[in-house]
């Protein structure tokens, strides 16, 4: 296995930044966000969990997906193609999040053109977690702090002779191409075992969730929900979006519009509101419950993967401490008491 010293890694990343758009965790006024960096010096090394997931690079918060030109005749153009991008410092859970989104946008026909172009253009370099941090629960939903799923390369911090060193696992073809010409030396190293969190609940199967749909438990959990969209926006797997056509320029005889896509969230009231003001999910209780059911029942039933990778960001971001782990534990308990 190839092992890089910190200096070699920095050098390699600088090299990547010249050839690609390099995104990495950056400390933006106290918040860790995946932002473009010019070289390795801007990277927030030693981070635990970023405040936003790298989803922002494969499924941007907002982007044009279609350009519409109305003139003598109407012309439709694809939105500008995304630049080749390397995202560095992806946590294994977030890479599994990208796989979960793929299940809807790529694996099912018709596939989503703009998302496919983003995924095609993006290489994910993972950085394994040495341990599970506060609120982390990747092991509950089938992941691990050193999982390679969905990544192209995975770097694991190992003890070097002086300072940090990184062992490189090549996982995909894309990763192999990127790793060509990488500095470092071949060494036999054993990868450290990550420290796992204890006392986590077991995830109930989707039919268990189905049985608890009308429990008063949901009322208690969701009563304090404010109806903001923070949990879904920080989530690496939440993928709902809103689409609007907006005028870009209007000249006599020629109008250019863009079809804009932006994140939307099932936890907010307007998400399901329809013409005339009727809302099929009229209460905050039904809206937040939907978020949990989407993650653990609807999405796995319809598309395969779970809609949750256990990153724990929603637990940290929620202003009123709605805790997805508490919900899982609650459903587990309900299921146990129901079957006994």
């Amino acid at each position: 296995m190839k092992v890089l010293t910190q200096a070699q890694l920095n050098e390699w990343l600088n090299h990547l930044a010249e050839r690609f758009t390099l995104a990495a965790p950056v400390n933006v006024q106290g918040k860790l966000l995946y932002r473009q960096v010019d070289d390795s010096s801007g990277i927030a090394w030693g981070f635990e969990r970023t405040d936003m997931s790298p989803k922002t690079w494969t499924f941007p918060a907002t982007e044009p997906i279609l350009i519409i030109e109305q003139g003598a005749e109407t012309r439709l153009d694809d939105a500008p193609a995304p630049a080749p991008t390397v995202v560095f410092g992806v946590r294994p859970c977030d890479a599994r999040g990208a796989l979960a989104i793929d299940a809807l946008f790529l694996d099912k026909e018709p596939s989503d053109g703009q998302y496919a172009r983003h995924r095609e253009a993006t290489t994910l370099i993972g950085l394994a977690c040495p341990q599970m941090w506060d609120s982390c629960f990747c092991t509950v939903v089938g992941g691990a702090p050193n999982s390679t799923e969905g990544l192209d390369l995975l770097l694991t911090e190992v003890d070097g002779s002086d300072g940090a060193a990184y062992a490189v696992q090549i996982i995909s073809e894309k990763g192999e191409k990127l790793a060509a010409g990488m500095p470092g030396e071949e060494k036999g190293v054993s990868l450290p075992k990550p420290r796992l969190a204890k006392g986590l609940p077991t995830l109930p199967a989707s039919q268990e969730w189905k049985a608890q749909f009308n429990e008063t438990f949901w009322k208690q959990v969701t009563e304090r929900c404010l109806g903001c969209r923070a949990c879904t926006f920080v989530c690496p797997t939440c993928r709902c979006f809103d689409v609007r056509d907006e005028v870009v320029s209007r000249q006599p005889g020629r109008t250019v519009l863009q079809r804009l896509r932006a994140w939307d969230a099932c936890t907010s009231a307007p998400y399901r509101r329809i013409a005339g003001g009727h809302n099929p999910r009229p209460t905050q209780h039904s809206r937040l419950r939907n978020r949990f059911y989407c993650k653990f029942m609807y999405y796995p039933d319809d598309f395969g993967p779970l809609g949750c990778v256990g990153c724990g960001r929603c637990i940290e971001a929620c202003p009123v401490n709605i805790d997805i782990l508490e919900v899982i534990a609650g459903v587990e308990q309900l299921a146990a008491s129901g079957s006994s």
Binding site: E63, P64, P80, V256
Partner: peptide, 9 residues
């Protein structure tokens, strides 16, 4: 600003 669209418009 709609920088992505400049070439189109």
């Amino acid at each position: 600003q709609t920088p992505a669209l400049q070439e189109v418009s």
